[in-house]
């Protein structure tokens, strides 16, 4: 499974970013290989309008199975992500990446 997180940094100990479109980073954890890949989303988060769809597009290309975030994508981004098979879990906005992963594994996060 590949699991994507919206984050403030690129490590387990870093904080989650509760925002979707304007999240600082997208971090993808590959469970099989135990590796991270990341995308620096700060250029997108600096656009005046349309951050949601752009971030969704980026995520689409990274093609994870699961997305873990805080508030959940806004309307535009949600519409874009519906095109994928990705499952979206929310409510992890004030955790660290590790806490978010563990909460997800323990079935404690709600599906959007």
């Amino acid at each position: 499974m590949n699991i994507a997180f919206t984050t403030k940094g690129t490590d387990w100990k870093d904080a989650m970013d509760p925002r979707f479109g304007r999240a600082d980073y997208i971090l993808v954890y590959n469970e099989t290989e135990d590796t991270f890949s990341s995308f620096d989303n700060r250029a997108i988060s600096g656009t005046a309008h349309g951050a949601g769809p752009q971030t969704a597009q980026q995520l689409f290309e990274m093609n994870p199975d699961v997305l873990i975030t805080g508030n959940g994508p806004g309307g535009n981004a949600a519409a874009a992500l519906q095109r994928s098979q990705m499952k979206i879990f929310i409510g992890a906005g004030s955790m660290t990446v590790r806490e978010a992963y563990e909460a997800y594994k323990a079935g404690k996060l709600n599906q959007a």
């Binding site: 656009t47 309008h49 769809p53 597009q57 535009n76 874009a80 095109r83």
Partner: peptide, 23 residues
Amino acid sequence: CQQVCNFHAVIKLGREIMVFPEL
């Protein structure tokens, strides 16, 4: 299309082009 849209209202998602009319 995605490249020329300054408002990010047209994006390419895999094998699909998606238009966001409100943007």
